[in-house]
Design a protein around this nucleic acid. Structure first.
Lengths: 232, 232
DNA sequence: ATCGGTCTTGGTCATGCGGCCAAACCTGCC
DNA sequence: GGCAGGTTTGGCCGCATGACCAAGACCGAT
């Protein structure tokens, strides 16, 4: 497979003509794809190297261990997610609209972007215990960033008065992140459309207005009271 | 570790006094726990055997391969989920209430029950290609069962007229299943409370009534139209 | 008391893994 | 045009893995 590549650029003799710093990128991209498809533990260093078009030794030169590759990939995922969301909301002021745009950006990155975000979310267990703390901190910052947006939206007065922001974040993240388990590119819905639909579900609910209890604020307060501390 | 077990029952010489059919159960239980904690590929047959209090050879007697253990575990997960939900709804007639109870049952099994459901949901990639079809069929039946409940609830007239049932299921499953990634037993919310809160979010939405657009049915129809076929 | 079949034991085997390295290589700088 | 470093090469090593099995222990039936 490595030697029979007839589509290689003309008479390339042996090695080292692709751009130098691109090698790291190739490794992470290949690793992301493989980790996503088969999981971290089921992927071998040789496979990553081969997919990145290099020999195992070369990979070892950049990353001392397989764990290091995963670590770098996850850190990159947080960085990209954060920056994608920041870019998406731009200078929009409406705090509810910001949440919608952020949701779109997150889902689009997860579905169309590279695989690092998927690996961050779904291969969490593979991270060696020692490295977990660092990634956890970065991931925590991303989640706090979301909490900030949600607090803002909540503070705007347009959300229900009684809400548990952390639970809301978990709820939304779950719905959105789970898309990665069933979404297939080329389906009849784009990630942006899925995100908008989910946002509408989240914002307005699935029960038809005529069929709702009269005082939903009271209803929510009751449910939330049962949900906080104490088993009722 | 195997030989220094001083707490063994008195003078037990070598083998074979635990109940006979319990061995399978011990294997699946141990495997579920380990697969959940470390993932399928990162778990060794020896670890499973040791956790099930037997030697690797004994495990091999019951299951020809590690894949077989995973397969049995996953099939059991679908069976248990289906039966847990069926039991939970009992003979309740209200189709919306049925969904709430089903949600509770699913989440309680995922959080408090054995680990097989978690493995089914999160270690999907580890299933060998050959065995995938069978599990997929069973899992599909569970999902169809949910779709049936959702259709019923939708047909009752209490849900919004324009909804994509499959998308709704994905949405709810995502929110609920994701709980398994952050829930820790002994926290301040029980699975049942989380499920009820999530159901309230889902049913009634997070935006406060006074701040909603006037005609939400039209709003939803527009979002859904954009979400089905065509990129708009 | 003995027997037959079910189940467990404790170890072996080939395979493929992650980690590693010394030598060759290429490229830009003096 | 030669030199110094960063980079790649291709293969090696010790080890843990999944799969497997022959021998024996146990138990209920006779």
């Amino acid at each position: 497979m490595t030697k029979t590549d007839l589509t290689a650029p003309s008479s390339a003799p042996v090695a080292a003509q692709p751009p130098p710093e691109d090698a790291d990128e190739r490794i992470l991209k290949a690793a992301g794809k493989l980790f996503r498809e088969k999981g971290f533990a089921a992927t071998t260093v040789r496979e990553i190297a081969s997919a990145a078009n290099m020999l195992p030794g070369s990979l070892h030169y950049r990353y001392a261990s397989k764990d290091d590759v995963l670590l770098a990939l996850m850190n990159r995922a947080v960085k990209r997610a954060m920056s994608a969301v920041r870019t998406a909301i731009g200078d929009v002021k409406d705090p509810v609209e910001k949440v919608r745009l952020a949701l779109r950006a997150h889902l689009e990155l997860l579905c169309n972007g590279d695989d690092s975000l998927y690996v961050l979310l779904f291969d969490w267990r593979s991270l060696p215990a020692g490295a977990r703390e660092g990634v956890e901190r970065e991931r925590g910052r991303y989640e706090s960033f979301w909490d900030g947006m949600l607090y803002e939206a909540h503070g705007s007065g347009r959300a229900r008065p009684v809400l548990d922001i952390e639970l809301v974040r978990h709820f939304g993240f779950g719905a959105i992140n789970w898309v990665a388990t069933w979404y297939r590119p080329g389906g009849e819905r784009t990630p942006g459309q899925i995100a908008d639909t989910f946002f509408a579900y989240l914002a307005y609910g699935l029960i038809h207005e005529p069929s709702r209890p009269k005082d939903l604020d009271t209803h929510f307060a009751a449910v939330m009271a049962a949900s906080l501390k104490g088993q009722g």
